[in-house]
């Protein structure tokens, strides 16, 4: 007994174990529940978030991969594309079809071809290059746009926090 969603999640988990993308660790929270995953995203080298290891939680819908999962940073974050409550706002996680803002083309959005690995890599590149248009966290976007040094300082504080330093 396993629905298509579960089969696909198991296949992706197997794939991630066999051939993990560099620096990323991801897996279901328990063997019983494949619809909740935890992932650790390393701050890409040479960027504001360098050095940090950011814990996230992925929640999959029962019709995955037809609908995208939801992703939340479980640590404190200060980033233009992450809501203050940790929810990640990137186009790959948006369901196709309905674009309330008319902002993204459908080519950037979710489709069954995408995978957990691609999501995690997209989030890594989002950490590296914040997109300050249509921000999820206006404060962070403003700081990023107007005061890059301050943004970097705050990002570094957060990165160190995730390692348990200070």
């Amino acid at each position: 007994m396993a629905g298509p969603a579960l089969k696909r999640l198991m296949a992706e988990y197997k794939q991630l174990l066999q051939d993990p993308p560099e620096g990323i660790m991801a897996g279901p929270v328990s063997d019983e529940n494949y619809f909740e995953w935890e992932a650790l995203i390393p701050g890409p080298e040479g960027t504001f978030f360098e050095g940090g290891i950011f814990p996230t939680k992925l929640t999959f819908p029962s019709d995955y991969p037809l609908s995208p999962p939801k992703m939340v940073f479980t640590c404190e974050m200060f980033h233009p594309n992450i809501y203050p409550d940790g929810r990640v706002c990137i186009s790959i996680l948006h369901p196709p079809g309905d674009d309330p803002m008319g902002y993204e083309t459908s080519a950037e959005r979710w489709s069954p071809v995408q995978s957990i690995e691609k999501i995690l890599l997209s989030v890594m590149s989002m950490l590296a290059e914040p997109n300050d248009e249509s921000p999820a966290n206006v404060d962070a976007a403003k700081t990023y746009r107007e005061n890059r040094d301050d943004f970097k300082r705050r990002a570094q504080i957060l990165a160190r926090k995730t390692l348990g330093i200070d």
Binding site: M1, A2, A5, L6, M10, E32, N33, Y34, S62
Partner: peptide
């Protein structure tokens, strides 16, 4: 519904 989502 959970039947579809669990391996056991």
């Amino acid at each position: 519904d959970y039947m579809e989502r669990t391996p056991v």
